[in-house]
Amino acid sequence: MVLVSLACFAFKEIIGYKVIAFILLVTVSFVAMFYRIVPTLLAAVLSALIWNFFFIKPYYTFHIGNTEDQFMFFMYFVIALINAVLTFKIRQIERIANEKESKLQSIKLYNTLLDSLSHELKTPIAAIIGSTDALQSNAIMTESQKEKLLEEISIASLRLNNQVENLLNMSRLESGVIVPKMDWVDVNEIVYEVIRALKIKSYSQKIIVTVPQSLPLFKLDYGLTEHVIYNLLNNAIIYTPQKSTINIDLSFTEDTLQIIILDEGNGFPEDEIALVFDKFYRLKNSRPGGSGLGLSIVKGFVEAQNGTVSLENRVEGGAKFVVKIKTEVSKFNPTENE
C-alpha cells in the first residue's frame, strides 16, 4: 500500500489525482485477495486517508477544498470499503467450495479403500463359512467333492492370514513402533530362505539368483529385509506369466547394498508407477487377491532402514525394482587366523 502510494506520489503531477484514486482502489482489491478481512478494511481506510492527505489539494492536510473533491473522497471511501468486502467474500466462498470438494474426495478415497479391504477380507471368510456349512450339512457328497471344499477352506484361510499379516505390518509401520534391529546378516541366506518360504505357493516361474563371489555381511534388520524380498518376489510370482523368469541380483559398493528384482511380466502403466508404493493403491486393471499393501510395506520397511526403493519398466518388457540400502559392510573373515 505504502509502496504504491509512494510511487503515485512521485508521478502525481503527471497522472493526476483521479487516476491515482483508481490505482489505490486496485491496490485495495489486491490486498483483499491475499489477506484476511481486518487488514483489508484497514487498507481501504488507509488508502482513502492517504489519497486525501497526499493527493487532494490542499496537500498534506485532511482538509478538502472544493465540494466536488469532498464528494469524490466520500465516494472513494465507500467504493474502497465495498471493494474490500466483496473481494474478501468471493474468496471465502471459493475456499469453502474447495474444502467441500477435497472432503468429498477423501471420503470417496476412503470408501474405495474400505470397499477393497472388506472385499479382500470377506471373500475368504465367505469361502470358509460356506464350505464348512456344506460339509456339516447332510447332503450326499463324493469324497472328491469333500476334498475340494477342504481345499477351498485351506486356500481361503491362507489368504486371510496373508491379508491380516499385511494389515498388522502396515499398522506397525504407521504407529512408528518399528525400530530396526541392525545386525550383521548374510543377504544370500535371506534370499534363499525367502525362496524356500515361497515354495508352498508352487509357482512355475524360474527364479535366478545372481550373487557376487564374495558377498560381504551387511548390517541390516533381518526380519524387515526378509519381508522386503518376500513381498517383491511374491508380487513377481503372482503377476507375471507362468514359466517366465524372475531375476534377483545382489550387488554392493563399499557402503551400499543393492538388490535388483527383474521380471518378464507386463510391467506397470507409466502413469501409475509413481502411485504403486502408496498405501492401498491397486493398479486400475489388477486382478483380485491383493490388498494394495505389499509394495507400501516394502517401501516402509526399506525406508525404516534408511534405504530407497524404486520401480521402472524394462526396455525389453517387465518390471525392475531396485532396493538400495546404505549401511555398514563387513568383509572380515575370522578363519584366516586359524
Binding site: 550383521w184 548374510d186 544370500n188 555381511l217 572380515f332 573373515n333 575370522p334 578363519t335
Partner: peptide, 10 residues
C-alpha cells in the same frame, strides 16, 4: 553376530 554368520556359511 558376524562370527556366527561367517562360520555357519562355511
Amino acid at each position: 553376530t558376524q562370527y556366527l554368520r561367517v562360520f555357519v556359511a562355511q
